[in-house]
Design a protein around this nucleic acid. Structure first.
Lengths: 218, 218
DNA sequence: CTAATAAGTTAGATTAATCTAACAATGTTA
DNA sequence: TAACATTGTTAGATTAATCTAACTTATTAG
């Protein structure tokens, strides 16, 4: 059984290694707000538990076992987020902190029930995929809004690195998952986009925003 | 802010001091399965935090502040139990262990939402009162079934010291809160009771069972 | 290709929560 | 009331998770 603290390291390793499959001690340290020596010693501990591959001065890699553990924690996190939004009526910007705590609850039954009541959802309220019962994730290949061009008609599928601020910003513009929007114009100079949807005939979105919105083409 | 561990001490103090208002270090130690020296040192810590009155070799007493804290944790526990049964479809014998973990979640909003969705319940699935938002408990004055006599018609209101085994026993006899039953006969020798209700024309309940069932007179 | 900077490790200290062993106070009982 | 048993405390050790200071290895920029 992993401690709550170990679980947080695993989860962080998982998210940070999403692309390269490797993480530096430094990145992990910054992400968790924990000093590097502490990270090093925890990595040695997790190496003994066969959760990470650790060698001095080399990048960190999760083992298959570690990846599964991490996936299962993320599964609990995202199921919880979905439950809070769908069954309890929370806003998508409110659920992260609560799920961050509930993800550590030890009760397979509890999460099985959530899963059942939600009808085995595939994504969380931010469009992120929910790992399956073996901790495996299938990332649907979404495109960033920023990669689209004038005239494209697209549908909001997910948001990345969804912070409270960002979600509140989207709320204020009435942008939500499933929303269909059309790209009216792309400013060549700074890649700002002008889009239209529903009652919003013309909204301007900065490049930073467009980088964080994932979409499906119509 | 209290640690999870401190919260467990407070909760234990609260339950154990329900009658006398005092608890011995020894009782607390046994209840929590923690050795006496550890309890002593934690009591000193909680005394500094003004949660308990502590004097060497004297019984322990919660302060008003400590009692409030404990009440609020029990509130979260019981709200959670009620939520699990009412909204998620768990059996009353399944919810204790999950609630034991969720009671430590830090999120006023989360519990406020539960409270709202449940319509501000007064009791948990075992008939125990849910403390109010100030941590205050109002114990309704129930009578034990064992104190009743032949011919009495009563309604199940609560169970005390509800263990998994006991609840499963009640399930097996289809005894639940709100159930109306009539006392057919009381065995003078061992105070065993013969009762009838619904489809059960004659069920025999031991004295031990009757001591743990709280009822309202019709 | 060195010298400076950044990243990573080692060593040792700290805090919270636990334990055991030894001692002290209180309570009980013959 | 003296002896024994129970209860409670003190002292000191242990473990998990963290830190700082000092040192080492790796990377990068002239």
């Amino acid at each position: 059984m992993n401690s709550l603290v170990e679980e947080n390291y695993l989860k962080a390793l998982f998210s940070l290694s999403e692309d390269k499959g490797e993480v530096s001690v430094n990145d992990l340290s910054k992400h968790l707000n924990i000093k590097m020596p502490t990270v090093t010693s925890m990595m040695k501990k997790l190496a003994i538990k066969k959760m990470v591959h650790y060698e001095s001065y080399k990048p960190l890699r999760l083992t298959a076992k570690g990846r599964k553990e991490a996936g299962l924690i993320i599964r609990k996190h995202r199921l919880t987020e979905m439950y809070l939004v769908e069954k309890m009526g929370f806003g998508w910007e409110q659920v992260h902190d609560i799920a961050e705590q509930i993800e550590h609850i030890k009760s397979p039954l509890f999460f099985a029930k959530m899963d059942e009541l939600l009808n085995h959802p595939q994504i969380d309220p931010h469009g992120s995929p929910i790992p399956d019962k073996d901790g495996k994730i299938v990332w649907k290949e979404y495109k960033k809004l920023s990669e689209c061009t004038q005239g494209d008609k697209v549908k909001m599928a997910a948001v990345i690195h969804s912070s409270d601020e960002f979600l509140k910003f989207l709320n204020s513009r009435e942008i939500h998952l499933g929303l269909k929007l059309e790209i009216k114009f792309v400013e060549p100079f700074d890649s700002t986009m002008v889009v239209s949807y529903d009652n919003h005939a013309s909204e301007t979105l900065s490049y930073m925003v467009c980088e964080r919105l994932l979409i499906e083409k119509e």
